[in-house]
Nucleic acid binder design. Sequence first.
DNA 1: CGTGTTATTGACCAACATCAAACTTAGTGG
DNA 2: CCACTAAGTTTGATGTTGGTCAATAACACG
Lengths: 244, 244
Amino acid sequence: MSDHDRLIKRLETIADVTESDKAALRALPFRLKRFEENQDLVVQGEKPTDCCLILEGLAARYKFVAEVRRAILSLHFPGDLPDLQSLQLERMDHSLTALTPVRAAFIPHSAVRTMIHNSAKLNDLIIRYSLIDASIFRQWIANISQLNAYERIAHLLCEVSERMRVLNLLDAKSFQLPMTQSELGDATGLSTVHVNRVLQRMRKEGLIVSKGDIHLILDRERLRAIADFNVDYLHFNARVLDET
Amino acid sequence: MSDHDRLIKRLETIADVTESDKAALRALPFRLKRFEENQDLVVQGEKPTDCCLILEGLAARYKFVAEVRRAILSLHFPGDLPDLQSLQLERMDHSLTALTPVRAAFIPHSAVRTMIHNSAKLNDLIIRYSLIDASIFRQWIANISQLNAYERIAHLLCEVSERMRVLNLLDAKSFQLPMTQSELGDATGLSTVHVNRVLQRMRKEGLIVSKGDIHLILDRERLRAIADFNVDYLHFNARVLDET
DNA sequence: CGTGTTATTGACCAACATCAAACTTAGTGG
DNA sequence: CCACTAAGTTTGATGTTGGTCAATAACACG
């Protein structure tokens, strides 16, 4: 799949895209760049002039609290546009980092602005994208504040596998989540040690199998029940859900 | 202040608004409605046809987790547009409720769409508004996952007083936060009992004084230090910050 | 191999939840 | 104006989840 198709595929998970809009998307200029593990793509405080599109690898938004403790705010897969907000918010209020080696495309704000200026549908699509982003944040607030460690990790696994599934990044029921236990802790507000214990429990209960950071979901339904997972907050295009 | 001016005042906290755009905003049709305490303005699962503008009182977005536990996701003051997302996301993924008696205006989606269609600046402004909304969610994720109870409540107080300050809803350094301790718990992921203990500690330390749900911040600087509060994530219009 | 990162384990402890009861406050109707 | 009620606040006792610390084991990579 071409780089531009990756983006189109992603946008199609949330809405239908017309052929002419696809053409406009394919015309976007990409400045390609590679990042090593743990390298930042965008840093808090910066004033980006480009939007960033993930093409390969796993990225995460994060911010530090009290200088020491890192909170991971969201996870991003190929096709994701993790800093659309820089179009309207001059200064980054958080950073974006590569959890694995990442290949990304940078698209000048001007190009994006021109594109959405010329197509009301694409304008709406970009807004919709941002709003779904916010919906996921809301769900994370609810999860972190109300679920216990076991449920929280289960929810994260459900979300990740669901988001990867609609992008065809899953082979069968397995999925690869290349995050260390410490990173999982940053994403769930738990200590590394406790993440480890929860994962062990899940393995023992036959919910998942892991080898390193390769995880295989064995019992999707049970995980969903544990996490009280409801896919609505991801606001997928209805067409995508039918393919379940 | 007129109802429309309330909205304009709010939008001016995040960006400059031209006179012609103000005229367009003043032309928006408002359907006024009152809500009692604890009455929902919008309910999860609904498909709204209007955007909602808070004119008086305090509102909160929330969702239930596991059917029992309520998570408050955000707080909303007069001038706020707490469900702009319904413009692009058909179905509500959370509810909006009145924490105090609320007076609100409902504006048909069609009217908002026409308005932002006719002004690129207003289109950008609405996008900016939504993106700041998301920025606040990110900060809440970071706070809930990394701060302890004392710091978390301090941060909430800082945010609320800051947001009210730029709307001129504060008299001097005091501010009224009409939330029960149970609601504060829902907003911070803490139990009522623990919220109570933290508030008592803050009173004892001379950080705040409260009578019922009227709270007075005595030592803003110390509260900010405790919470590691940095106002950047609210992305205020620079002009507003100068008035500090 | 050696070296650095990640995963695992165990002992211990703190923060916060839960439960239950008493107290305060504000609102209501007689 | 006072009793009555309901909602919210406060208190104490007790329990549990998950954090911290520190050491060891398993891997991955040059």
